[in-house]
Structures are given as C-alpha cells and as structure tokens.
C-alpha cells in the first residue's frame, strides 16, 4: 500500500510558513485529489480548490460536510480568472500546490 508523506512533513512546513488557516479565505491551485486541501480546509472559512486534470479531479476526496465551504473546481488558474462568476474574488492565502 502506498503511503504519502506519512510523517506529515509537508503539513508541518505549511504550518511553520503560513501559521493557522483559521477563518481565512484560501485558493489552492493544482489541488489534485485534495490531498493537501484536507490538511487545512477544516480550519479555513472558505476554500476554492482548482484542479484542471480531469483524472485527478475525478479522484477528489473531501468530506461531504465540507461542501458548504470548499469549492472544488475542474479549472486551471487561467480559466478561473476568465470566468466572470469569480471576478473580484480575493484570498488571504494562495497555495501554488506543486503547480509552478
């Protein structure tokens, strides 16, 4: 069985660099199946998670109770920016998640 970052080094580094996500609006670019999203979304006030790869998007796994405050979208950053629905959105944290 594959285990990804079992020592949670990524989560620790995120906490050291960004502190708490409590009450924040967060944009995650390249969210994949939500692996990193699950680490911080519980605390955040609102999360927009973008994943343009259809295969990874289909594999997203987030608790259904989070659907009220986590928006997982099958979009690239470019498509998100072009969409008038999201015009004017601002975020306290933007996560470029292995996507640059």
């Amino acid at each position: 069985m594959i285990r990804v970052d079992p020592r949670a080094n990524e989560t620790r580094a995120l906490r050291q660099s960004a502190g708490s996500f409590e009450g924040l609006r967060v944009l995650e670019i390249g969210a994949g199946d939500g692996r990193l999203t699950r680490r911080f979304a519980r605390q955040a006030a609102h999360v927009v998670a973008l994943e343009p790869d259809a295969r990874r998007y289909q594999r997203r796994k987030l608790p259904s109770s989070w659907e009220t405050h986590v928006q997982f979208l099958p979009l690239s950053l470019e498509d998100y920016l072009k969409n008038p629905l999201f015009a004017g959105e601002r975020f306290d944290r933007v996560l470029l998640s292995w996507s640059l």
């Binding site: 995120l14 660099s17 601002r90 470029l96 640059l100």
Partner: peptide, 8 residues
C-alpha cells in the same frame, strides 16, 4: 495582508 505559498 495575504500570502502566496509556493510548494515545488
């Protein structure tokens, strides 16, 4: 006051 977090 926002922050960009780039992980790569």
């Amino acid at each position: 006051g926002g922050l960009l977090l780039d992980i790569h």
